[in-house]
Simulated scan of single mutants.
Amino acid sequence: MTDNENLESFDLAGVIVGETAISDVDGAAGRLSYRGVDIVDLAERPFAEVVWLVLFGETPDAARQAQLNRFLCQHARLTLEERQVLKLLPQHLHPMLMLQGMVPLIELPEAETLGVGLDAEHGLVIAAKISALIAAWYRREQGLSPLGGGPDDNFHQHFLTLLHGQVPDADAVRILDATQILQMEHSFNAGTFAGRVCASTLAPIQSVISASIGTLYGRLHGGADQAALEMAQSIGAPEKAAAYVAQCLAEKTKIMGMGHREYRTVDPRAKLLKPMAMNLCNDPDSRRLLDTLIAVEQACQQEFATRGKEIWANVEFYKGAVFHNLGLPTHFFTAMFAMARVYGYIAHYLEFSRESRLIRPRARYVPAREPAMA
């Protein structure tokens, strides 16, 4: 590398830093697959089936899916010690900071029961506990007592019961399954790569997941879902979207949730999620927010078309409307992302650990310039 090369070359964009068999992001074609299966197909499958496929590379039978659902539901309960630690945290703490701090403190079993290896089982226990932590933190914010359990045959039905204290309808469970499948895995995204760097030091899986969650919190990564819906709330109505977009472009302000670093065409996850959100969001408030988001996307596309360019909403853009309809405040959206992406983190930990090697890049030293003489 020569001294006059632009520093932008250090952002690692497009640089191959490893291999994976877990997922493939084809940005040019707008395709995403897990273990060779297209996301269009996977979004319609049972959640437990896709979890097993992502982690272990095989399609489980119905008995294995039922076993995994029971395992996740049974571990989606906080111990007395975990509840006591949770009570000591500041109540205003963002859910993502709560998760990042609590994950390394989770008590993990010493013996396995699923027959998938202790590392994998520890990861699945953490995944289950994340759902319990989110539900407990939400109920604490709402001034409600934590709940101890729910149905054991469907993980997301169990979670929504822990969250709101009543068994949800089938449509809510179905769209939550699909939404979480769509954001479960995405190759070497920032959070996953941070986890692989952590794993390369031979850190335990709870440290790896905590590092990944901390990275996911950023507004330029997982935090875009919260920012996108809060943008729609601040705009207020669909008819105000065009003026908002024009002002953002004039002031060179980033419109959260529009465009994606990898996809040069429509994000395949957003393509699937948008019609789901349109079918789900029927109450006046959710519909107004969704219509505002749709108007923002249309205004962006019109503005970019005048410049001879195309732009599309990514998955973060529309999933906020889904989570809002499910009764979650905006500051919990990224925690819901973590609750799904954790399975990708586990899969990468297992894959990388088979041939672990310390990730230690080099930096080019550039001495600081001396201050100019007065």
Rank of each mutant, 00 (worst) to 15 (best):
T2L: 12
E5K: 12
F10I: 01
L12I: 05
V15H: 15
I22D: 02
S23A: 14
G27R: 13
A28I: 14
A29S: 14
A29G: 12
R31I: 04
S33H: 03
D38Q: 07
A43M: 11
R45Y: 04
A48Q: 09
V50Q: 05
V51K: 05
L55N: 13
G57K: 00
G57T: 00
E58D: 04
T59A: 07
T59P: 00
A63W: 02
L80F: 11
L80Y: 13
V85F: 10
L89W: 11
L99F: 05
P109Y: 13
L118I: 15
L118D: 10
E121K: 10
L124F: 04
I130R: 04
L144A: 12
H156C: 06
L163C: 10
V167G: 08
P168Q: 10
A170K: 10
D177K: 03
A178D: 00
T179G: 14
H186M: 01
F188H: 02
G191S: 15
T192L: 02
G195H: 06
R196I: 07
C198I: 03
L202F: 15
I205Q: 12
I205K: 10
I205N: 08
S207K: 10
I209S: 09
I209D: 06
S210H: 06
I213D: 03
G218F: 00
R219L: 11
Q233R: 13
Q233L: 09
A242G: 08
V245C: 02
C248E: 08
E251R: 13
M256Q: 09
P268G: 03
P268H: 06
L273H: 09
P275Q: 10
M276G: 09
S286G: 06
R288Y: 05
R288K: 12
Q301C: 01
E303H: 13
F304E: 02
A305Q: 13
K309M: 12
I311N: 12
N314V: 03
H324V: 01
L328C: 04
H331W: 14
A338V: 08
M339H: 14
A340F: 05
A347L: 08
S353L: 05
S353V: 02
R362K: 15
A363P: 06
R364M: 05
R364N: 06
P367K: 06
